[in-house]
Amino acid sequence: MTQHLRTQYVYGVLDRDGLRGSNRTRLGLADVSNDDGRLVWKQAFTGHYPEFRRFDLMSRAVTMTTEAAGLDHLGDDQRRDCAILLSTAIGCLDADLGFQASLGADTQTASGLFPHTLPSTCLSSVAIRHRLQGPTIAWVTDADQELLGLQYAADLIESQEASSALVLLGNALSKTHAATVGLESQLCVAAVWGNATTFNELSDVVGSGSLLTLIRHLDAQHRAESC
């Protein structure tokens, strides 16, 4: 297991204010989605990404957020040992509703959507793109348990199962399905990558706040540095 002594982190966030992150991405939500609210890769990043069109909402959101964080600096050893963790309160409700709707008698079953009815599937889109081969785990949590992802990341590093971790918080629900279930449309995905030292330092900075609080702290700090 490679030990990383250098403190570093990256972060990304995609919410109703748009997409931004450590790699200096600063885009409004309208800049990364088309007219019907579907997240679109080419409007956010340069370079063709043909697989992206096959992704569901959660996969698109976590992939874009991680891209905005930027993992290009990771070496091969780090990628091999990097854990990928997701905590989510609404799980994959968006894909569930889409797949269930496709089971109607007069529609064709959306086979491409079925794998996305599992919360962990979206993580493979990140793993494949960034060649991350560490432990990959999805937790479904209460809405106020967002910090758990960071705790679990620290646990995995402390137990030497990973040398670093990409920690994702993801709750995504499209406008169409939000209306169906009578909830607000949600798009709130955040990612932070770091090692144990980083997580310890960050927890000192933000106290006992949620992962989203941490991300917002990093975001504000980064914005200030960019000015």
Partner: peptide, 11 residues
Amino acid sequence: WGASNDANHLT
């Protein structure tokens, strides 16, 4: 116990 990701294919 140990875990990994193939980082290869969705399904």
